[in-house]
Structures are given as C-alpha cells and as structure tokens.
Amino acid sequence: MAKRLKGLSMIEPFSQQTAQQRRLSEDWGFSSKSQGKRLLNKNGSFNIKRIGSSEWNALSLYQHLLAAPWWLFYLLVVVVFVGVNCFFALLYLAIGIESINGTNTGVWTTHFYQSFFFSVQTITTVGYGGMAPQSVAAGVVSSFEALTGVLGFALATGLLYGRFSRPSAKILFSQNAIIAPFEDGWSFQFRLANERSNQLVNLEANVIMSTLETVDNISKRRYYQIELTASRIFFFPLNWTIVHPITPESPLHGKTAADLEKLDAEFLVLIKGYDDSFAQEVYNPTSYKWNEIVWNARFVTPFYPSAAGDTIMDLGAINRYETVGRQA
C-alpha cells in the first residue's frame, strides 16, 4: 500500500466549512450533484448530454460545421454536392432529356450521366457550351439551379473561411500528471507545449480539483482551487511544467492513490493566452482523472542544445517521465 504524504488532509469536513468556503467549493460552473465518468473530457469538451429540447432547437448546423474535423467537413461538402446534382439530374430526366441541347440518345444510364454533368456545369456556372437548355421547363430548372449554386458556394466559402480564421490554441498536454519530488516534499505536476509554431504569450493556468464526497449520506461534488508555483508565464517557446506543491494547505495533503480513487478525483485545467496570429485571446481546457496520475515520477527534460547552438524542442518527449526512488 502506498505511503501517505506527510501530514493529514487539510480538506475540512463540509459541516465545518464556513459559508464562503462552501460557496467556493461549489461555485465553479459544475453542480455539486454532478457525477459520472468525468466532468471534462481530455479534448476539452464537457461531458454533458442535453435533453428536453427538440432536435431542431438544439441543432446548430453552423457551429457543427465549424467545429467538425476537416475530413468530415470535406466529406459533407462532397456528399451535398453530389446529392444536389443528382436531384437536379433527376429533374432534367423528368422533363425529358430532349429538353437539353447537345445530349445523345441512348439507354437510361447514358441520359442520367449526361443530365448529371449538365447539372454540374450549371450549378458551378462553368458552362462549356456543349449542352444547353432548349425548353422553357429546362430553362426554369437550370436558372433555379444556378441560383442554388451561387448561394451554396457562398455558404461553403464562408464556412471554409470561418474554419481557417477561427481562433484556437493547439496545446499539447502530457498524457499523465505525476506526483513528483519538489524541494523537500512532493508536488502535483503536468506539462504542456505549443504544438504549433505561432507565438503564444501571457499564458495563464487555472487548475481545480474536483472530488466526490459524502455529506449526510448524499454524494456531492466539491471543488478546490489548486495553488501553483507559477500560474502565469510571459513567453511560451518551450514546455511549461505546471507545479502544485503539496503543502499542509493543499487538498492533496495526506492523500494516497487509493484516496483519490475513492474520491473520484479529477483535476480540471484551463490554459488561456494571447495568440499573436489571431491577435486575440485563446484557451485550451483539459482534465486529469485519478487514474491518469503517475506516482513517484519525474518528467524528463524535452529540449536540448544542438551542435549549432540552437535549442531543439522535442514534442514527442512531453509525455516522458522516469520513476524516482523516493516513495510518496
């Protein structure tokens, strides 16, 4: 069994906390009744599912398309493009293939792909000149399709620009937090680095420890602000190791790995800073659960000097740590 950190836990029982302490332990945006696997997913999204509203009211297509992965965004664009052209191709077939000048007679499949490619030329306003509508019905449909194409490509262009211009930070966090030696005692640590080559300055870190405690036979969430040795840095060219000394005032004081498991402990992290590329503030949240903490470890330095005198930052070493002989 792991040895306890020196001293006793300084988390006061709920019944002995002052009104201000109770408010601070509950008022972090999460309810004291929140339970489940985790409050904050590793990718920074909240582990919340909303019900009680219709799907149409909850649906925000614009937000989903902005936040969707690139592969999904391009897939949706291709699917919509092909689907719309198939729809108009079927309309041209319903009118009659003879209503399109420049088409050849043949089987149904030949008529369909001719109608499909005429639709592509119309919706993209390419107009090679090989095919053209020669009836009133075909002219009305092609005019409506051209309008659909103008509006559709304007929307797609806006979404594409919005995805490129949307400010976002791509911060690489260590996969695990660690309990590491610090001065004469121990500390809770994790580290991060900028995965991009852009400049991030004036970074600020906030860490909250969430525990599931039993009060009057009722399980409730409690939240504790984690004090850091340095909660802010001005420049971020290398990695930043976030350190919380486990002092007698720390909510981790006297805790073992088994204690954190029993408390279902989760450390909520919010990193924010100023992005020089977007000229505005960006943020990146994440969290560490109790089972993502490695005890008795020390991070390995992820950067080193090159022969030319440059500093080499190895992003692949952000997750590397080594065990230490001391036992927490």
Rank of each mutant, 00 (worst) to 15 (best):
T311M: 15
V215M: 06
E249L: 04
F30K: 03
R166T: 12
F112H: 07
T105C: 07
P285E: 15
V79N: 02
L315E: 03
N194F: 05
H111Q: 12
K272E: 05
G83S: 15
A19N: 05
L40F: 01
Y321N: 05
A180S: 15
T256M: 04
Y321E: 04
P245E: 12
K220Y: 07
K170C: 11
A146S: 12
Y161E: 08
R163E: 07
F73T: 08
S54N: 05
W28P: 00
L24V: 07
G44E: 06
E249T: 09
N291Y: 07
L263K: 04
V282E: 10
A2E: 10
W295G: 01
S115N: 09
I271Y: 05
T301K: 10
G36E: 08
Q16F: 13
Q16R: 15
L155T: 03
F299Y: 14
Y288S: 02
F88C: 06
L238F: 13
H253R: 01
F116T: 02
G52W: 10
F46G: 01
G185W: 10
A230Y: 12
A58K: 08
G273T: 06
V140R: 00
N291W: 03
N202F: 09
Y223H: 13
T157P: 03
S119N: 06
F299K: 03
A2P: 03
T124V: 07
P285A: 13
T122M: 02
T286L: 09
L66S: 04
I208G: 00
T109V: 05
S115C: 13
N47K: 11
K49M: 08
E195P: 01
H111W: 09
A230C: 08
Y321L: 10
F117P: 01
S135H: 09
V201C: 00
I11R: 12
T247Y: 00
G44L: 03
Q280H: 04
I171W: 15
A68I: 07
D310I: 00
T105A: 14
G102W: 12
A177R: 08
T109P: 00
A265S: 14
G149A: 06
